[in-house]
Simulated scan of single mutants.
Amino acid sequence: MLTPEQFIGFLAAAMLITASPGPDNLMVLGVGISRGRAQGMAFGLGCALGCLSHTVLAVAGVSALIAASPFAFTLLKTGGGLYLVWLGIQALRSRGGAKAAAIRPADESLFRLFTRGVFANAINPKVVLFFLSFLPQFVIAEHGNVNWQIAALGLTFTAQAAVLFGLLGFFSGAVGQWINGRPRAGIVLDRIAGAIFVGLGIRLIVAR
């Protein structure tokens, strides 16, 4: 089980990262603006549930590394930390410009939009790499049950993404207008996410 501090710290970081402008949430907004609230919510929930496939990979990969070699796990954590620092620097250098563009309307059922969201997230190699970099730093190996800790973290990330993406889909029209009318809003969110990434990456590198 996750400790309260472990859970709260992870949830706060996950929510800030999920809320930052990125391909997934901008696509959810685009679908909602073009096709309606229900369609935006369906696509957003699909994107969120696509994270479950990355959770399974993280559980299998990280647990296997810990069992095989603590040194290999240290290399994974160091490499993951460097990757997070790189993502943070990119976000800090970003000039914003995120736009919630309307997506061309199409006659698709809610289920089809949902499956599109799942597929779009599940096959994204950047999300796989992010999960392998992000989740391990919140694992406390000394508490044991590492695979269950990673699974709980992945499920937590999926749940908060489902809530936030669902809200984005529901309020897509208003949120889209707010983002498009305030270019600096995206810059501020990028700076916040960038600082989080850099901080988490450094913590992951120096942790023992």
Rank of each mutant, 00 (worst) to 15 (best):
L2N: 02
P4R: 01
E5A: 04
Q6K: 09
I8A: 08
F10Q: 13
F10P: 05
F10A: 10
L16Y: 14
T18W: 13
S20P: 12
P21F: 13
G22R: 03
G22Q: 10
D24V: 00
N25P: 05
V31P: 04
V31K: 07
G32I: 09
Q39K: 15
Q39C: 06
F43C: 15
G44S: 15
G50I: 08
C51A: 15
C51L: 11
L52G: 13
L52D: 10
H54D: 08
H54R: 06
V56D: 05
V62Q: 00
A67T: 06
A68V: 08
A72V: 15
T74H: 12
L75N: 11
L75Y: 14
G81T: 05
V85T: 03
V85L: 06
V85I: 14
G88R: 11
G88T: 11
Q90M: 05
A91V: 11
L92G: 04
L92N: 09
R93P: 02
R93H: 05
G97Y: 05
I103G: 00
D107N: 02
E108I: 00
F119W: 04
N124V: 02
P125V: 03
L129Q: 07
S133M: 14
F138E: 01
E142W: 07
N147C: 09
N147Y: 15
W148G: 04
I150F: 03
A151H: 04
G154A: 12
G154L: 09
T156K: 11
F157G: 01
A161S: 14
A162T: 14
V163H: 06
F165C: 07
F170V: 09
S172W: 01
S172P: 08
S172A: 10
V175G: 03
G186S: 06
I187G: 11
D190K: 12
I192R: 03
G194N: 14
I196G: 14
G199P: 12
G201D: 06
R203Q: 05
A207S: 08
R208Q: 08
